[in-house]
Design a binder for these strands. Structure first.
Lengths: 204, 204
DNA sequence: CAGGTTTTTTACCAATTGGTAAAGTTACGA
DNA sequence: TCGTAACTTTACCAATTGGTAAAAAACCTG
């Protein structure tokens, strides 16, 4: 048995959304400890006790944010179609991950911050949500490899390498900006490179 | 003209080393804001004001740590030998990066924490130290490619992908442990995978 | 529009935190 | 071994921070 949990009012829905948007901006930029309730409050035009009215603690905001975004974040992996063309499915996944890195760098950095520090507030969710999906999709990739449609390799490490390369462009943007400055076609170049890289790697 | 800057005493050398070791452990695990001077002090058996005796502020500890470690961290890139065999040089670099990820995950996560948050205390050092080295080594790689010794691709993105994949094993270890649990040969498998991946990618 | 409920605001608090002042102790060269 | 400089410790502080209490305001429903 949990809470009575009445349906949330319109105001509740709106304000929780405002809070999460401000929290995403700040947590992704400064990490959990580097963000204060006052910052979140002023970023969304509220007062600190008002945040606590909607979330019982700063940690509750962070956890809700992580868990809410994780589902969307993983949806492209979910979308691997076992009946599609293996190479096209993998490249579509990789392209989508690059696009998400470009469009949603805050989400990427939010997770990066959390996981680099040992995922203290997300481990249960990783076990419960990510692990089963990961195992299942590794299975699909493995099937494709054994059918000779993709080069044979360890599917888990393959997925790690896709995550690593694609999310690197969001997570390490500060460094990349220094090393490839003033390149307004950087994103395009990155996307071309990554697609060609994995096309070559995955060719049987 | 800067400080008089007398040669540091034996005690100074020892104690700064103790402080940096404790700071590395804590900053890499909890980030800059997530680490307190009291934690650092008790981790190295000192008292808080003693830290301030050796470093003028918490930030000074962090900056010194980052700048000190960066040189070692980059040394493998520095070691690319323009006269060596291109494929062997690249694979040696990649192997060394994997080894460092395994042996020095704290250093990797220290930098990851800093860069994910926009490198607020490291940007000048990136400009001054990393950028010139990076450009130079990109040049070497480019030469190798144009000599037909390596597959042709954007050298900067190639190096990014090497960093991404190798450091991922240190930075995202919390996630990898969940997804490939109980695998005491994980590191070996990762090293094999990554070497084969880049061997295939780099073959002309 | 009355009355209760939800939401917002003001005032506040205790704990933590980065850092200081200054007294006390140790190390070391003359 | 003595004096001074280097180092350590204790006591302290002001600012920040996560969070609370409770009054005030806004909102909704019969």
């Amino acid at each position: 048995m949990t809470e009575p949990a009445r349906k949330p009012s319109r105001i509740q829905v709106e304000n929780r959304k405002r809070i999460l948007e401000a929290a995403l901006e700040l947590f992704s930029k400064h990490g959990f400890r580097g963000t204060t309730l006052d910052q979140i409050a002023s970023a969304c035009g509220m007062h600190k006790p008002n945040l606590i009215y909607y979330y019982e603690s700063k940690e509750a905001i962070h956890v809700d944010l992580l868990n809410t975004l994780m589902t969307e974040w993983l949806s492209p992996l979910n979308a691997l179609d076992p009946d599609g063309d293996p190479m096209e499915e993998m490249l579509r996944y990789i392209r989508r991950k690059m696009e998400m890195s470009r469009l949603y760098p805050r989400e990427s950095r939010l997770f990066a911050n959390e996981i680099v520090q040992g995922a203290p507030r997300m481990l249960p969710h990783l076990e419960a949500t990510l692990k089963p999906l990961f195992d299942q999709q590794c299975g699909i990739v493995n099937t494709w490899m054994h059918a000779g449609k993709l080069a044979t390799m360890h599917p888990a490490h393959l997925i790690f390498s896709i995550w690593a390369v694609t999310q690197h462009y969001a997570d390490f943007d500060a460094q990349i900006s220094v090393l490839l400055p003033g390149d307004d076609k950087r994103a395009r170049g990155a996307e071309q490179f990554v697609e060609e890289m994995f096309r070559k790697l995955l060719s049987p």
